[in-house]
Write a protein that binds this DNA or RNA. Structure first.
Lengths: 239, 239
DNA sequence: ATTCCACAACTGGCCTACAAGTCCGTCCGG
DNA sequence: CCGGACGGACTTGTAGGCCAGTTGTGGAAT
């Protein structure tokens, strides 16, 4: 595929996704674009064309629009009528709020889990953390982050609630956009993050809500502090 | 308007809403249906026809579908392909989760406000509570609830965050659906709720995070306990 | 009387065409 | 040379129709 063709695809990457007829088209488009935004393959401020996407997926604008509308309500894209649809720029206040919401929920989760332990959760978490230790050794950033996702999601799901995990994942996604601006710079943090994960899990399993809450709070704030540098290194992606 | 005509409108009420050309049509439809669902004018399990709505609003199905899709992601309606769109039935586990999420956020809000007081917020809250006292005296359920909304929203907005208020409002809306099943039965609770609102505000303004958090927790659980009776009185609306 | 099947009515998913607004380059007049 | 008006090439918004799948009904066969 030539460089010119890539431009025609509006910067949406070269791997053309094929639609699976068994799953709803809007879902597939939604997930595809969302992942491209989170992973910074679609850059903040970049224009997204409904027509281009429609050609790319070989569908009409209708399912594309449905996907973009959902991304819009979640804050990943901004639809400006008669002007275009754009990947939202990052902003510190937005990220700060994401941390606030996420911390509120994560703290509530570990508090509940420490009060009411779930053994199956502990087993799964420990396996995830073991894998994450391997990923840290191999400096596999992508894998490490996926396992980070799964760790927090496993905690949330252990409460038995169905939507909390999704809500946490959403706020985490907004924070991950910033994190993915400079993934390589974070390799030094792996051991630190891993230690905090263990501290959270240990506090939960020892049945100490206050300790678990404190460990999660510390974890959230440390993660956020790492992100604070991003606007300095990449001001063009911030409002 | 005759009873027959009402049936033709698919139970969506008799007041035909006129679209405001200045605002996006999907937004208006979204808000209209959402409010009808929250206020129990559209009952859980009831079928919603896209075509009927399109006629009712004198628009095509396109903006209607956009509104219904948004309502679907928020859990107010359920779209079953080739079968129909239905108002979601209530479920205790869903409401319990709504309380969990809402309590997490509200607690975090008052905690932050107690640590960092905002005087303008206090002024507005006190005015709201004064009005709410009047509404309680007049046993005006609708007004009381609207002011309840505004009280919690004012607290959330005082943090300076833009999305927290909306998130709280959403979970509150799901709880209000249950509450609106038996509004009249709650008149005895007005003074109790009002007292708790004052306790929350006082704790915030006295700069005591722990007290504010505890007051909000108590408030959330008391409100939830009121809702627990609903499935017994109205089992047909629950899954 | 009961079971099964075919058909008609209706649903949401998707497509195409058109409407309305924005942006930018070009051309004309000064 | 400069400035403003105009037009064309975009953008998203909306309308309306077709399609595939589901459902309920009524008639035929047992």
């Amino acid at each position: 595929m030539t460089e010119d063709t890539r431009k025609l695809l509006d910067g949406l990457g070269t791997t053309v996704p094929s639609v699976d007829y068994k799953r709803p088209t809007p879902n597939q488009v939604f997930e595809y674009i969302r992942d491209e935004i989170i992973s910074m393959q679609l850059l903040p401020g970049q224009k997204i064309s409904e027509n281009t996407l429609a050609e790319k997926f070989s569908v009409s604008r209708t399912p594309i629009r449905e996907a973009l509308n959902r991304l819009s309500t979640l804050g990943f894209v901004e639809v400006r009528p008669q002007r275009g649809t754009f990947v939202t720029k990052l902003s510190m206040s937005f990220i700060l709020e994401a941390r606030f919401i996420r911390e509120s929920l994560e703290v509530a989760v570990v508090n509940q889990l420490a009060e009411n332990r779930v053994d199956s959760m502990a087993m799964e978490c420990e396996k995830i953390l073991a894998d994450q230790a391997k990923a840290a050794k191999k400096k596999d950033a992508l894998l490490f982050q996926q396992l980070d996702d799964r760790f927090h999601m496993t905690l949330a799901d252990a409460t038995g609630f169905k939507r909390v995990g999704g809500a946490i994942e959403l706020e985490k996604a907004h924070m991950d956009r910033v994190r993915n601006l400079s993934l390589v710079e974070l390799t030094g943090q792996y051991e630190h993050v891993l230690k905090q994960h263990h501290a959270i899990l240990d506090a939960i399993m020892s049945g100490s809500p206050q300790q678990a809450v404190q460990a999660m709070r510390t974890h959230m704030r440390d993660v956020f502090n790492i992100l604070k540098i991003a606007p300095v290194n990449h001001p063009e992606f911030f409002v």
